[in-house]
Amino acid sequence: MTSSSIPVITIDGPTASGKGTIAARVARALGWHALDSGALYRLTALAVARAGGDGGDEAGAAAMARGLDVAFRDGGIWMCGAEVGDEIRREAIGNLASRVAAYPAVREALLERQRAFRAPPGLVADGRDMGTVVFPDASLKVFLDADVAERANRRHKQLKEKGFSANLCDLLEDLRLRDARDRDRAHAPLVAAADAVIVDSSRLGIDETVQQVLDLWSARGLAR
């Protein structure tokens, strides 16, 4: 089986739209692999932060991206031999990731690493440019959106459940700024692919959203 013949479902969308959770559950339902591309950018941001950087050095951030010592195993995310799944979900790292992700050199450094996740029997990939740049030949492209206020509420609940302090008003402002930065960047901006299906999850639960994606896949006459 050639790489191009391996089916891919891409789920793109803004921060806190739920795309990571949905992608993971869709992958599990289909028995496929999953790629959380945002984790790679957050890992790059974490590496930059640990090196004392503030995201202002494109070449330095790209070097960090190329040299990432990371592994995804046992349901965890590991960097340099330590589990960092919770650490990369901190808002400060998320904001830094949004900044370094705007650099073309960083995106280029991570492009082939992301494409390498494409393996039989299939891949569900979530991010911001999965359907437009990384896997433009994907069998199904979904753009998962949600109202920014609802996304802020979800992120607030998520952080509180993990024991992190969070201010809802600050989260809402951060999301608005991050949305603008992601949509307005010159290289690989956050935008729905021309052939993507828009799914608004503002009033949908996780199970309902997962089922919508699975139904879209089934409707194309493609076997699970």
Rank of each mutant, 00 (worst) to 15 (best):
Q212F: 10
G76H: 15
S201Q: 02
G81P: 03
L204G: 04
L30E: 01
Q158M: 03
S98K: 03
L111A: 15
L110S: 04
F117R: 05
R151V: 08
A194C: 06
K19F: 13
Q212R: 15
R203Y: 14
V84L: 01
D86I: 01
A47W: 14
C169M: 08
E150V: 14
G13V: 03
R115N: 03
R25S: 13
D74T: 01
T44L: 07
V191H: 09
V84R: 04
L168D: 06
A223N: 12
D57C: 10
A97P: 11
G81K: 00
E87D: 09
A102I: 06
S201G: 03
A194D: 15
G38R: 00
W217E: 05
I6Y: 12
E161A: 13
G53E: 01
L43E: 08
R203V: 02
A192D: 08
R42P: 00
R155S: 05
D145S: 15
A105K: 09
L144W: 14
K157H: 13
K19S: 14
G52T: 01
C80I: 05
M64C: 14
A119D: 06
G94H: 01
H156M: 04
F164P: 00
R115P: 08
G56S: 13
D137V: 00
A192T: 08
A192N: 06
T44I: 09
I88T: 10
D184C: 09
E150F: 01
L40M: 15
N153G: 05
T44E: 11
G163T: 08
G53F: 02
G163K: 11
L46E: 08
G122Y: 11
V8T: 08
L140Q: 04
D137F: 05
S4R: 15
Y41G: 05
Q212N: 09
L40S: 06
D54A: 11
S3L: 12
G60S: 10
D12K: 05
L140P: 04
V8S: 02
P14A: 14
A196N: 07
R118L: 00
G13H: 07
R113C: 07
V8A: 03
G38C: 03
R181P: 07
D36S: 04
R73D: 15
A194Y: 00
H156P: 08
L204V: 05
D207V: 03
A152P: 08
R89W: 12
G75T: 02
N153M: 09
R90L: 13
L35A: 12
R176Q: 15
T10L: 03
P104Y: 07
E112N: 09
V124Q: 12
F72P: 02
W78F: 04
A194R: 07
R178V: 02
W217I: 06
L159C: 00
S201E: 04
A51K: 08
W78D: 00
G38A: 01
S201A: 13
L172W: 12
D145M: 10
E208W: 03
